[in-house]
Computed example of a mutant assay.
Amino acid sequence: MAIAFTFPGQGSQAVGMGKALADSFPEAAAVFAEVDEALGEKLSDIIWNGPEETLTLTANAQPALMAVSIAVMRVLEARGLDLKKQVSFVAGHSLGEYSALCAAGTFSLADTARLLRIRGNAMQAAVPAGLGAMAAIIGLEHADVEAVCAEAKTLGACQIANDNGGGQIVISGEKDAVEKAAALATEKGAKRAILLPVSAPFHSTLMAPAADAMRAALAAVSMNAPVVPVIANVRAAPVSDAGEIAGLLVEQVTGQVRWRETVEWFAANNVTTLYEIGAGKVLTGLARRIDKTVTGIAVNTPADIDSALAALIG
């Protein structure tokens, strides 16, 4: 009956997120202040006041979501949570993997904020606007989506970016190829194939320049072994070695976020409860659809924190 903490990825952001935490808890306010200082700008003002289109920019959304997750963590820890004693594993969806690693002590908060700013900028700059695309394929098996991507590759790069589970798989690559794959998926019986309003083709081979940028950035920061193992996105298995984690984070930029397999790994290894730490409840919803034996619980408000502490430490 083990517990894991999961950390949300891009798409969970919303203007105003974390404001109630910062207003209620000095530990949370200190997180936002430290992130502002690390980045040399008032990201907290954008998080709490918008505008939404500025918060949604990849270079802002990534450190912003991490800040909210770590704000929740710092409040939990100030009130008695011991991650190493009460939690068996951490995992995060895409950028959420950095939040998970920060929570587990691999990176300092300031370094995590700077790494995610570098990551966001590098991912945005990797592909000229309009060249890439992403699409959500609903209701097709993984193997079928792989097959349509392979067929569409005659028009350019195309691959699975996120296997989110619950019948949702996101593909990414060059625009013509992704559009072709989406059409083929519909022919194969997909319930829906929807082009996503994203600014770049994340988790595709087109992100290779961003992977190079992250290799250099990760080589320049101090890394510790996480206090609990992280379930790496590209491996869907636990990792604790800091050097290995750095390599997997580089691989993650161009590789597949294996979230369905991550939740399945939890279920197969007696993890019964996933606390989603941070903004929104996307991962909580996915957990329910992937494996009914796993319970997802979103923790992002002061009331959520009280409930989580009561369950975790009594």
Score class of each variant (00 low, 15 high):
Gly189Ser: 08
Glu53Trp: 12
Ala38Pro: 02
Gly314His: 09
Trp48Arg: 14
Ile3Tyr: 14
Lys85Met: 09
Ala129Cys: 07
Leu101Ala: 03
Ala193Glu: 02
Lys180Asn: 10
Ala268Glu: 00
Ser199His: 06
Trp265Pro: 08
Met66Cys: 11
Trp48Lys: 12
Phe32Cys: 04
Lys84Ser: 13
Gly11Lys: 05
Leu131Lys: 15
Asp176Phe: 05
Pro8Asp: 02
Gly16Ile: 02
Ala122Thr: 00
Glu97Asp: 06
Val299Gly: 04
Arg117Thr: 01
Ile305Gly: 12
Ile137Gly: 14
Gly50Phe: 05
Arg288Asn: 12
Ala308Glu: 01
Val282Phe: 14
Lys153Trp: 06
Glu52Tyr: 12
Val127Asn: 02
Gly80Gln: 08
Gln86Trp: 07
Val31Leu: 06
Gly120Phe: 07
Arg288Thr: 11
Thr273Trp: 07
Met123Leu: 01
Tyr98His: 13
Ser240Trp: 03
Val72Cys: 12
Ile160Glu: 06
Asp36His: 11
Phe89Asp: 11
Leu131Ala: 13
Ser108Gly: 11
Leu101Ser: 01
Gly120Cys: 07
Asp111Lys: 15
Val72Arg: 12
Ala64Asn: 11
Ile313Glu: 07
Arg215Gly: 08
Ala308Asn: 11
Val68Glu: 00
Ala64Val: 07
Asp36Phe: 06
Glu97Phe: 09
Glu264Trp: 13
Ile297Ser: 10
Asn300Asp: 05
Leu312Pro: 05
Leu39Gly: 10
Ile3Gly: 13
Leu39Pro: 11
Met73Leu: 14
Arg114Phe: 07
Glu151Gly: 04
Asp111Val: 10
Ala185Phe: 00
Leu76Asp: 05
Gly40Ile: 02
Gly167Leu: 00
Glu244Gln: 15
His93Asp: 03
Thr205Asn: 14
Gln252Cys: 07
Asp23Gln: 14
Asp212Ser: 10
Ala125Phe: 00
Ala104Ser: 15
Thr273Gly: 11
Ile138Leu: 15
Val145Asn: 11
Gly40Pro: 06
Lys292Gln: 08
Lys292Thr: 01
Ala29Lys: 15
Ala22Gly: 14
Leu274Tyr: 03
Ala110Met: 06
Val31Arg: 13
Ile277Trp: 13
Ile171Gln: 06
Val282Pro: 13
Ala30Tyr: 08
Ala91Glu: 05
Leu43Gln: 03
Leu249His: 01
Ala133Val: 03
Ala157Asn: 14
Ser44Lys: 03
Leu309Asp: 02
Met134Pro: 05
Ala177Pro: 04
Glu179Asn: 14
Ser240Val: 04
Glu261Met: 12
Ala193Thr: 00
Ala22Tyr: 11
Val282His: 14
Val35Tyr: 04
Ala71Asn: 00
Thr295Trp: 10
Val31Ile: 09
Asn224Gln: 10
Gly189Asn: 10
Ser172Ile: 04
Gln62Asp: 03
Arg117Phe: 06
Lys84Tyr: 10
Ala182His: 00
Met123Phe: 01
Ala208Pro: 00
Gln10Arg: 02
Val253Gln: 05
Cys102His: 05
Gly105Trp: 02
